[in-house]
Amino acid sequence: MDRALDLTAGLGRAAILVLRGAGAVALFAAEALLHLLRPPFYGRLFLRAFVEIAWFSLPVVALTAVFTGMVLALQSYTGFARFNAEGAVANVVVLSITRELGPVLAGLMVAGRIGAAFAAEIGTMRVTDQIDALTTLSTNPMKYLVAPRLLAGTLALPLLVVVADILGVMGGWLIGTQQLGFASGAYLKATFDFLETWDVVSGLIKAAVFGFIVTLMGCWCGYNSGGGAQGVGRATTAAVVSSSILILASDYVLTAMMFSR
């Protein structure tokens, strides 16, 4: 009986901790969003963050997308051959990439690059008093550090996903035509015949949500870090882990909302 009570109490404490954390992150996000509506606006910082996310993440997202498209074509071909359904390879590749793998893989790649970088940068600013210095220099740290990054992440990831979609389909086409014996025109026709606008748009909506999550968790973990270099290290790990989990969890929720009948 005592053991059962201990277990229940432990679960309760954990639940309270999670809820308290979620509430704090939500308030943090709300405050940052309010700062996006009130001047002054830091356009230069927004552009810097946008370039950092969109341009410098391009190589890793592009490579991920190309190889994913190639693997998808190979896997679906060998799998579908069992049912004499090899002709569906192009449709499977384009639907998987645009609806699911493009946004999710780009989100995870950006979580590793940008979430970690933002958490480390803002965390270092926290432990070296730079955030306090901002306040004494009449500058709101949320408005200066968090709001521009949130906006940049939300707008940059959909752009990256457009590139990932194109390169992922190209990866599939490359394997389809060079290794699996599809005619180039037939493969592309099969790709676009069954592709609907909503397939692409739903992926871009997901990407915007994932971009928001990655930058939010990077900023949140960095902003609340402490304990010197070790604290910054913990913040960086927490940013990547929490944003990766949130991307996968929100992906399920968004997919259920967009495609459930």
Partner: peptide, 13 residues
Amino acid sequence: IGMLFQNGALFDS
């Protein structure tokens, strides 16, 4: 108000 922090707290970026 002006403030000089112990470690400078200069903005690295």
